[in-house]
Design a protein around this nucleic acid. Sequence first.
DNA 1: GATCAACCTGAGCCAAGTTCAATTCAGTTT
DNA 2: AAACTGAATTGAACTTGGCTCAGGTTGATC
Lengths: 207, 207
Amino acid sequence: MGTKIVEPEAGPRSKRAAILAAAVDCFGETGFEATKWSTVAERVGIGQTALYHYFESKTHCLLTIMRLELQRSHDKFTEATADAAEPVEALRAAVRAAYDVSDQEVLQMRILQNHMDLLSGPRKSKREEAERVAARQLVQLVERDWTNLLVRGMSQGAFPLRDAQLLGSSVLGLIVSVWRWYRPSGPTPLSEVSELIEGACVRMVAT
Amino acid sequence: MGTKIVEPEAGPRSKRAAILAAAVDCFGETGFEATKWSTVAERVGIGQTALYHYFESKTHCLLTIMRLELQRSHDKFTEATADAAEPVEALRAAVRAAYDVSDQEVLQMRILQNHMDLLSGPRKSKREEAERVAARQLVQLVERDWTNLLVRGMSQGAFPLRDAQLLGSSVLGLIVSVWRWYRPSGPTPLSEVSELIEGACVRMVAT
DNA sequence: GATCAACCTGAGCCAAGTTCAATTCAGTTT
DNA sequence: AAACTGAATTGAACTTGGCTCAGGTTGATC
């Protein structure tokens, strides 16, 4: 069951963090397929083969990024909804938390959304598969986060009764669909997006 | 401006259609990157190099599939909303139309969603770039379809005034987010999805 | 039955991810 | 300080899969 991945503790001259950061930049801006693995190495300042000391493959690195982002999302949701007794207020807080992100995290969300499909099929190598399973589990966790929020609101009479599973996926889908088009440099500030979606979610769920 | 792509008229022994169909199956089930171009050839019953008689590259084929699906979506929207005077009724009709699809079209929508990011950057070769631009244009068309529907409803007093652009993207995002997880063989019938989303959209827009 | 364009193929090229054996480096032991 | 150790790194070679090329086949049309 919940086999948690032990984060490789960073030796003092480990470049794992630097590689992850560079990879997020590259994969986020250029796209995973379009960025050459060797470019990431260059940006970090090491030869391409040195990457394989830290990651089994380009995909393994991608999966790691995705898992970390999912972990962050789940944690943030939990933290944001912890002290909100009222269901509607909890929903609002959850949505706001979802859009309270740094530019780096925007990239990570984009990467995550663009490669969700990787999580369905099994992977060949051990460590890749481990990351995939962990990520897949986190996806279910996040989905449960939202569904539970809805179930609570429904049983409490704050939300009309509906298929909480399906509605939860839809709310989540609505929220994350933003990361496909949003750019920090774009014309629409994230605060505006956040407000509109917050209202939309409340209307969708609580009307 | 609107440079429409002339569909290569099918010579009598052309296998273009068969290739597209096979590619939709493969790309949809296995994923674009994961399917070998040669597998598509096999399934059609020709050598891999014969594919290049019809498509400049694997990506060119993908872009074509995406463009065709976008064209279909746009047409279907137009047809569905043509004879609906009432904005709310038009919205409902549009949502229902979006989910009135064959299994093959489900795959096409999935492919489209999973590779939207391809449409942002320019392509190297001529024909690929042509498809990309055409697709990109169609995306904007479809977005305008939805925003216009909202604008009409707002100016008519049927919907409260909100940022129609942003709300339109969100509605569209909500609708298409389904194709990430929906499987015809899955537990949830599409009719159920359609009903829930239809309600959700109306609440989101018309409340 | 010659012609021409559409259609197809085998052989091989090339880019990018990956493997591997060998080397450097920093800190620890003796 | 010399020897040792494991983490970090590298150049060279291997593999895979998309793609090019130079030519061959088919069949509709005249």
